[in-house]
Amino acid sequence: MTLLYFQYFQLLSLLLAIVCGKGLSRFSIGILIPILLVDNISDILGANYTRLFHSPDNYFIFNLYYLLSTPLYLYLLTIMLKPDARERRRILYVALAIEAFLIANYFFVQGRMPFNSFTALLVNLTNFVFSCLVLARLALRKEEDSHLLIDPYFWINAMILLFSLVSMIALGLQKYIALNHIQVDGKSLYFALMQAANAALYTGYCGAILLCQMQRSK
């Protein structure tokens, strides 16, 4: 079984999330456990899919991953956004529209086998916008004793924001990179970028999970 280096961070974050489940519940982000589970399974399958199933690519896995993980991520971001009833309803409509587009794209537009780049772009854009909103709301809240740098929400959203930013650029250039065989250290630039971004994302998650646990202990 092949494991890419960022997957160690990913596994570590899942392990921490399971161990610190009560800490996550205290911050109402227990949903992070199924998210990390889906992330881990899809990335492990993705890394080994071509070898195991003698397939030319692993896009099928990631297309399915986007369908499954998007509602979970949207739910997580909504919890962290702490919307009022009216906002919650609007977010629900947006989430339903996004999910409907993803399903339509998966079945009818780009199909199941080729990489669903529209889906990836839309998901990353949505995550980017939502994480910006959460961060802005965290910064502008009125609670006096709140400290941004020890807030798990801050680290999760900061990392999602940076990850989405890199993902969007990398996705935009993916075909160009592939066509021109642009590589760094013998690896495709796209994969190099995505692996680094993933490593940063899951490191951020690990930090946030530990912060949840520490603040629960207090």
Partner: peptide, 19 residues
Amino acid sequence: IFVLLFFGVLFIFMLSYIH
């Protein structure tokens, strides 16, 4: 990518500073 990342990080720092 680094320039855009820089702006992303700058945005986060700016929010931290506002907070």
